[in-house]
Amino acid sequence: MEGLARLRRRVAAYAAHDDPLTSAANWIALVVAWNQPFYPLYLWAAVGADKIAPSFLTFMSTPIFLAVPAVAKRHALAARVLLPLTGIANGIVSTKAFGVGSGAEIFLVPCALIGAALFRPSERAIGLVVVALSAVAHSIPLRFFGEPLAGYTAADNSAMVGLNALSAATLIVFIGLLLSGAMPAPDQRGDQVPRRK
C-alpha cells in the first residue's frame, strides 16, 4: 500500500502545474497514456486475439502523451497544444490501422473538445485551429486510408464501433468533469502535493 501511495504522489507531482488548464491537460494526457496499454485487451475481447496486432501502432503516441507534463513544466501553452495534436495524429493512425468501419475517428471528438475548452480567450485562435484540424482529420477521404491492417468482418467493425464509442464517451465525460471542477485533479486537492512555486 505504501508503494502505491508513493507512486500516486509521484504522478500527482509530475502532473502538477500552477495553471489549472495546463494541470487538466496533464491529467488528460496521463489518463490516456495509462489506458492505451489496455486497448489491445479490450480489442481482444471484441474481435479475437488474431486481430489485435494493429492496435500496437497506437502505442507510438504513448510516450508523447506521457511527455505532456514534462513539456508543461517548460512551456504550458506548448503542452496544451501537444495534447490534442497527439490525439489527432493517433486518431488518423487508428483509422488507418482498423479501417474506416471501426469508428476509430470518433476519438477526434475529444480532441476538438480539448481545442474548444483548454485555451483562454487570448489563445482562442490556437484552440480554433485545433478544432479545425480535428474536423479536417475527420474529413480525410476514405480512399486515403485504404484497407485496414487486419481482416475485420462487419461483425468485428460493429464491435469496434461500440468499443470506440464507449471509450471516447468516457474520455469526454472525464474531460467535462475535470474542467467543470466536479472532479478536481489530485494536485488541486488539499491533501495532495503542493503547487509548484
Results as ranks from 00 to 15, higher is better:
S122T: 12
R74G: 01
L118Q: 05
A155G: 07
P121Q: 12
C111G: 03
G146M: 03
A117M: 15
S122H: 12
A76D: 06
A67D: 08
A97T: 09
A125F: 08
S180A: 14
A182K: 13
A116F: 08
S139Q: 08
G190V: 12
R189W: 09
A159C: 00
P69K: 15
C111H: 03
D191T: 07
R80P: 04
E123D: 11
P184Q: 05
A159Q: 03
G101D: 10
L163E: 15
A165I: 01
A168F: 01
G87A: 11
C111R: 00
L108G: 07
R143M: 10
R143Y: 11
V100T: 15
L149E: 05
L83E: 08
L128C: 03
M183D: 14
S102P: 09
V161E: 13
Q192H: 13
Q188I: 02
A132G: 10
A169C: 04
G146F: 08
F174D: 03
L85I: 09
N164P: 04
L163I: 02
M183T: 11
A185Q: 11
V129I: 15
F145S: 08
L149C: 09
E105C: 00
G151H: 14
L178R: 15
G146L: 06
S94N: 14
A185D: 08
F119W: 03
L128E: 14
T95F: 00
A168M: 00
G127E: 11
V81R: 07
T170S: 14
P84E: 06
S134A: 15
P110Q: 07
A112L: 03
K96F: 13
M160N: 04
R189G: 03
L85R: 02
V173Y: 02
P84V: 03
R143P: 02
A169S: 14
A79C: 02
M183G: 05
P110S: 07
V109R: 02
S139G: 07
V93G: 05
E123A: 12
V109G: 05
L113R: 00
G176I: 04
G176C: 04
V68R: 09
I172F: 03
A185E: 14
S180D: 13
R189F: 09
S94R: 01
R74S: 08
L108H: 04
P148N: 05
A89Y: 00
G127W: 07
A97V: 11
L77E: 07
A168V: 02
K96S: 11
S158E: 15
A150K: 10
A155C: 00
A112T: 01
T153F: 03
L177E: 10
G151L: 09
V136H: 03
V136G: 08
A185I: 12
A72P: 01
R143W: 13
M160C: 06
P84R: 02
P110N: 07
V161L: 13
L179V: 09
L108R: 02
D191P: 00
V130K: 01
F98A: 13
A168D: 02
L166D: 07
V93L: 10
A155T: 09
S180C: 11
I140V: 14
L171H: 08
L108E: 06
T86Y: 01
T86Q: 05
L128Y: 10
G181F: 10
G181Y: 11
P186N: 11
P184L: 06
T95V: 04
R189I: 14
R74K: 15
G181W: 10
D156H: 10
A76K: 13
